[in-house]
């Protein structure tokens, strides 16, 4: 989808842009480095906290929309009980997120918002969230592979505003009406984006794209998983190396599974909480009778890959379930993260 409008912005005005955007939402969430040196997507209070040259954060920015844990409702009183839905009208602006994470949000949007049932909690947060993406002008992280997933190095859709650095100028793209309103707040800083700027961004993206890893493992894995051509031996090898920690799901911006528990607060209020879950955990499918249809790590490995890469799910959700952010590569103890798995599947072919 072509952008609604394009502008240019001198690179040295970026701070001012960020500063103004800070006033455009109740909460601005951006890449922030903590004193020990870890990068998180966290609430930004002043522009100098923002760091745009980051290796992908361990936890994805999608937690702003689908938190690690959140309240579904609380119950007060008992005769009869009264259900109270959580209320928040606070607006949120996600600043400086990468194209792969924008693609992840698009997949989450489709999963949580379209179809027979809508997820009210996600919908409430999403409707109040604006996305200002910053495209990658160089490989952002040693482990990422957007070129295998067609999710970068710049986003083609899914952003409200997108900034792409070309030498000393940013190309500013407006993706939505919401983005247009944000651009209006910046109008005195923005200039005309001439064709050269647009073409140059395109050319450099192409250059970067070809420079990035293109092993072809992903399409091969998609084909073989869809066709159920992956041998039992490969699933067992992957399962045998998986520690069952679930880390790959918890860091994945696309993973959307959750479990639900009730907790009782000291004042007697019951809170129903949902928290992120992983199909890699042994208890994920264990039933009260003790029966577990996916009792083996190999079965869970196959499930994880099937959900992310089978064409049946690509059909159902519109895109594949991996955007190539590389986070699972960082976290996996057994070395059976997404790129390793697609390679193992391809090698077998």
């Amino acid at each position: 989808m072509p952008p609604l409008a394009t502008y240019s912005l001198p690179a040295d005005k970026l701070e001012e842009v960020a500063d103004r955007l800070l006033t455009c939402a109740d909460r601005v969430i951006g890449p922030v480095r903590t004193p020990p040196g870890d990068l998180f997507f966290d609430v930004v209070r002043s522009v100098n906290e923002i760091e745009l040259q980051y290796g992908n954060s361990l936890l994805p920015p999608t937690t702003a929309l689908f938190p690690m844990a959140e309240e579904i409702f609380s119950v007060v009183g008992g005769t009869p009980p009264v259900i109270r839905a959580p209320r928040s009208d606070a607006s949120c602006l996600l600043f400086g997120i990468r194209p792969c994470d924008v693609a992840a949000i698009q997949r989450l949007d489709h999963f949580f918002l379209d179809g027979e049932f809508k997820d009210d909690l996600y919908a409430a947060r999403r409707s109040r969230t604006a996305i200002v993406a910053v495209a990658c002008s160089q490989k952002a992280d040693a482990r990422c592979f957007c070129s295998c997933c067609d999710t970068g190095p710049f986003a083609k859709t899914g952003y409200d505003l997108q900034l792409s650095l070309v030498d000393d100028t940013y190309l500013v793209e407006v993706g939505t009406e919401q983005g247009r309103r944000l651009a209006q707040r910046l109008s005195d800083l923005l200039g005309v984006a001439d064709d050269d700027l647009i073409l140059e961004r395109e050319r450099r993206a192409q250059e970067l794209f070809t420079e990035l890893e293109q092993k072809g493992n992903m399409p091969s894995a998609i084909r073989r998983i869809t066709g159920e051509a992956v041998s039992q031996a490969v699933w067992e090898r992957i399962g045998g190396r998986c520690m069952g920690c679930g880390g790959c799901s918890f860091v994945c911006p696309v993973c959307s599974c959750f479990y639900v528990i009730d907790q009782t607060l000291p004042d007697g209020t019951v809170q129903r909480i949902r928290a992120q879950d992983s199909c890699r955990l042994a208890g994920y499918t264990r039933e009260a009778s003790g029966h577990n249809p996916r009792a083996l790590p190999s079965q869970r490995a196959a499930r994880y890959s099937y959900h992310k890469l089978s064409y049946r799910y690509i059909e159902r959700e519109g895109t594949q379930g991996c955007v190539g952010c590389g986070r699972c590569v960082t976290v996996c103890l057994g070395g059976v993260h997404m790129p390793a798995v697609t390679e193992m599947i391809r090698r077998e072919a």
Partner: peptide, 19 residues
């Protein structure tokens, strides 16, 4: 069929079998 279920509306993921 029975599966461990947490939402009933196709979101929690627990009950999925294949697609």
């Amino acid at each position: 069929l029975e599966r461990y279920m947490k939402c009933g509306i196709g979101k929690c993921g627990h009950c999925a079998i294949k697609h």
